[in-house]
C-alpha cells in the first residue's frame, strides 16, 4: 500500500469525527419525555379530547398545524370541522394553547428530546412558563 501511514491516519481521524456524537453524549442521561395534559382547562373538560384522536394528533400534529395555517391564512378558511362534525377556530395561540397552556411540559418536552426546533414560537406568543393566558 502506498502512503499507508497517511491513509490509516486519515481513516482514524474520520472515524473519530464520525463517531463524535457518541462520545459527546456519553454519561448524559437521556430522560424520557413526559408530556403532561394536566392544565386547568383540560381538567375541566367533560370529554378530554383534542380536535382529532390522540393517536392521530400524536403522529400528525405537525401536518395538521401546517394545514391549519395554510387554510386559515391563505384560504381564509378559519374554521375546522373535525371528523365528528365539531367546529374549532383555527388558531395556535387561541385554540391549541388555550387547553395546552403548558407549553413547557406539552410541546417542549418531546421537541427537546427529539431535537426538533419548530419556529412557531418566534411569532406565536406564549407567556413565560408556557401559558398563553
Amino acid at each position: 500500500m502506498y502512503d499507508g501511514g497517511k491513509i490509516i491516519t486519515g481513516i482514524i481521524i474520520f472515524l473519530l469525527f464520525a463517531t463524535f456524537p457518541f462520545y459527546y453524549n456519553i454519561g448524559k442521561a437521556n430522560v424520557k419525555p413526559d408530556p403532561k395534559l394536566d392544565t386547568p382547562v383540560i381538567k375541566q373538560l367533560a370529554e378530554k379530547k383534542c380536535v382529532e384522536s390522540k393517536e392521530y394528533m400524536r403522529a400528525n400534529h405537525m401536518q395538521i398545524l401546517d394545514d391549519w395555517r395554510n387554510m386559515a391564512l391563505r384560504e381564509a378558511k378559519r374554521t375546522y370541522r373535525n371528523a365528528e362534525g365539531k367546529l374549532f377556530e383555527i388558531s395556535l395561540q387561541n385554540t391549541c394553547m388555550k387547553c395546552h397552556s403548558n407549553k413547557n411540559k406539552f410541546c417542549d418536552e418531546c421537541h427537546k428530546y427529539a431535537n426538533v426546533k419548530p419556529y412557531c414560537w418566534d411569532c406565536h406568543f406564549v407567556k413565560e412558563g408556557g401559558a398563553a393566558k
Binding site: K77, R78, T79, Y80, R81, N82, A83, L87
Partner: peptide
C-alpha cells in the same frame, strides 16, 4: 399515505 388528512374533516370559512 400517512400525510393524508382525515377523510371526514374539512375547512370552512368561519360562520
Amino acid at each position: 399515505i400517512f400525510s393524508r388528512g382525515l377523510e371526514a374533516s374539512e375547512y370552512i370559512p368561519p360562520p
